[in-house]
Amino acid sequence: MKKDVTAAQDFLKGIWQQNPIFVQVLGMCPTLAVTVSAINGIAMGLATTFVLICASLMISLIRHLIPSQVRIASYIVVIAAFVTIVDLVMQAQFLELSKALGPFIPLIVVNCIVLGRAEAFASKNNPFRSMLDAAGMGVGFLLALFVLGSVREILATRSILGFQVLPEGFTPWLVMILPAGAFITLGLLMALVNWNAMRRKKATEVEALKHYRESMASTA
């Protein structure tokens, strides 16, 4: 691990630069399935974030005790423990949301983001950094699901979180609450993120080239 990575970077990279949905393309199953509305996206994002933070913290704490041969199984047991907590709490406190999200809450156990962070980060870093990393990834996931759910909810029902934002004259797009709508919206959002990244990369290249030419000119 490089020493020059600051704690802030560990947190921030998950939100944009390495966003689990738009850049790493992990956890597609809940992303496509539950984002029919913004509230579902928020609930799923919060549940996953909670599991991510707790599991990463726990795994980082016991990372020296886990034999590497059985590490994946050990991670899954830790993750499953926290998912069970989330599942039971949601059933007790938010029954409607729990019903809306259906099997996708228990399925957080096999969410690639959680296991991916455990394997790629928490098993190699200290508990504090692991928590920051997990929180960043969780927020990135939450934001992606919120945006996706909002776009789909607005176009399919004209309103978001109960507030009507589009006029009555707008014909709702039924396709947006169907699975096809999830794929179309996610694809277009991903294209937008990539387009932005490409433009930035090009801008830095042009900048570097300009800098190089200037330095060459000044030495000559």
Partner: peptide, 9 residues
């Protein structure tokens, strides 16, 4: 797309 978005119309 239209068939999926506006099935009734």
């Amino acid at each position: 797309f239209l068939q999926a978005a506006f099935p009734v119309a």
